[in-house]
Write a protein that binds this DNA or RNA. Structure first.
Length: 272
DNA sequence: CGGGCGGCCTGGAGGC
DNA sequence: TGCCTCCAGGCCGCCC
């Protein structure tokens, strides 16, 4: 379940492994992901120049194109030196000159692979997918004052955290964790929060995401690193998946509720 | 117009 | 052992 920290982890690892690699060929499964995968024949003989992340999207910069990849819920990008013949859900393989491969595996096919021309979008920020996105939470330019200005109309606080048009990259897991550390109930409305609560929330958004990146993301369900190894953040959850267990801060049991069809985990004693 | 919810998918878990 | 149902959560489109 890749949220910002998992995608950032993959981005950093791709920077170490595929920058400078030149694409010789590609192969597609023929199955559609969220959308149809476009033909990648234009990418032959292009070199990978850089890797970026915006929200939960990876942006691979080539000589003439932006290749934009979303991991959906169960997507993996794996760098190997042999074609993955025995794998069931490989939908795209990039074959590099010199004999390495980057493959995209995604059982549930909730992800996406899109291709844009740099002549159409000289800066990847102009790509329509990124048009309505809010702040990147870990950028220094995202200050408390800018965050505080987002509290302009009534909205449930967990929905607010997960809404990328306000702040990008927070998914269901980290929303619960951020609210726990901020001692704010997920049932609250953002307009009912005090300034000290907002300051705490702002700091915890940055702190939780940073810690998760330092630990290489969360490997529950399918997420793994570019080399197949696991992240460690799942070992440090305070509330996510801990319903029925004792809260780490008090003796109350962690509860699980449903909000907008999603599970929310919280401690009703610590979070007011 | 905007908030909320269903659909897209598969695999794994749990019930009977 | 096998079949059924439910659940996982990102994102988009549709509906009210």
């Amino acid at each position: 379940m890749p949220e910002l920290p998992e995608v950032e982890t993959v981005k950093r690892q791709l920077k170490e492994t595929i920058i400078g690699q030149k694409i010789q060929d590609f192969k597609l499964s023929g199955l559609r992901l969220r959308r149809e995968i476009p033909s990648l024949s234009d990418l032959k003989n292009q070199t990978i120049l850089n890797i970026f992340r915006r929200n939960k999207y990876l942006i691979i910069e080539l000589n003439y194109n932006w290749l934009v990849i979303h991991l959906g819920m169960t997507g993996q990008l794996i760098f190997v030196d042999k074609i993955p013949l025995h794998k069931k859900h490989v939908h795209c393989i990039l074959h590099f000159w010199g004999g390495h491969y980057l493959y995209y595996e995604d059982p549930r096919r909730f992800g996406s692979i899109d291709l844009y021309h740099k002549k159409d979008f000289s800066d990847y920020h102009q790509i329509p997918l990124f048009e309505n996105l809010g702040f990147e939470p870990l950028e220094a330019s995202f200050t408390f004052n800018k965050f505080n200005e987002l509290f302009s109309k009534s909205k449930n606080i967990k929905s607010f955290l997960m809404d990328a048009s306000f702040v990008c990259g927070i998914g269901n897991i980290y929303a619960s964790e951020i609210l726990f550390l901020s001692k704010i109930s997920p049932k609250r409305d953002i307009l009912d929060t005090s300034e000290p609560e907002r300051k705490l929330l702002f700091q915890n958004i940055k702190n939780v995401l940073k810690k998760a990146i330092e630990l290489g993301g969360s490997s529950i369900s399918d997420f793994v690193h570019v080399n197949g190894q696991s992240g460690k953040m799942q070992n440090f959850y305070n509330v996510y998946g801990r319903n029925g267990l004792k809260c780490n801060c008090c003796n109350h049991l962690v509860e699980k509720i449903n909000q907008n069809g999603r599970s929310t985990f919280f401690c009703p004693s610590c979070q007011k």
